[in-house]
């Protein structure tokens, strides 16, 4: 196993370029949750030329619909399946998004868009919602509150454990599966 890298959001170009598929990363800083319905709305806004509820440039989106907080900032909050976001992803990357966190495979179109935009796709341990919740410092609703667990939440995370799934070269850890 290679050495774990510590990274901070927003992601700068140099840091992203240094990442290689399969490397372990501990990510700290701000990340935004968004899953199916939020992606549909964001892509709708981009298509219509409307104003987005968050500035995507350099940011990281986490495919997650958290459980409500019992104590502390948030409930269990593991990743959801990334593939369902594939149809919307290239558009978001073109709009400035630099990182995504989820679980599972991405389409060739997404891998190509990652390479084209110098972005990165991370995977987080799926089904470890209670474990990952311990890495979240704060949680604030940013947009689409009516969507409940599918709203966009701004999370501050500390040492969020990730593995690089697709790097800026478009290299995919799952390409052999």
């Amino acid at each position: 196993m290679s050495k774990t890298k510590h990274m901070q959001t927003p992601l700068d170009k140099k840091a992203i370029n240094s990442l290689k598929a399969g490397e372990e990363v501990l990510l700290s800083g701000t990340i935004y949750t968004a899953r199916d319905q939020a992606h549909m709305r964001l892509s709708g806004l981009i298509t219509e030329g409307g104003k987005l509820p968050l500035e995507l440039t350099g940011q990281v989106i986490y495919y997650c619909g958290p459980a409500p907080a019992k104590t502390g900032p948030i409930g269990s909050c593991g990743p959801t399946t990334s593939g369902r976001m594939d149809p919307f992803t290239p558009m978001l990357l073109d709009a400035g998004l630099k990182g995504m966190i989820g679980k599972g495979r991405r389409s060739q179109e997404v891998a190509d868009a990652i390479k084209k935009n110098g972005a990165v796709y991370f995977i987080a341990p799926g089904g470890a919602g209670a474990y990952l919740r311990e890495k979240v410092i704060s949680c604030v609703t940013v947009a689409f509150e009516d969507l409940g667990p599918e709203a966009i939440y701004k999370l501050e995370v500390k040492d969020f454990p990730l593995v690089v799934g697709i790097d800026t070269e478009g290299k995919d850890i799952y390409s052999k599966l």
Partner: peptide, 14 residues
């Protein structure tokens, strides 16, 4: 994850 969930009565998965 299972130990944290049991101790804090949190769902194992969101």
């Amino acid at each position: 994850n299972s130990e944290i969930a049991e101790e804090k009565k949190l769902p194992l998965c969101q």
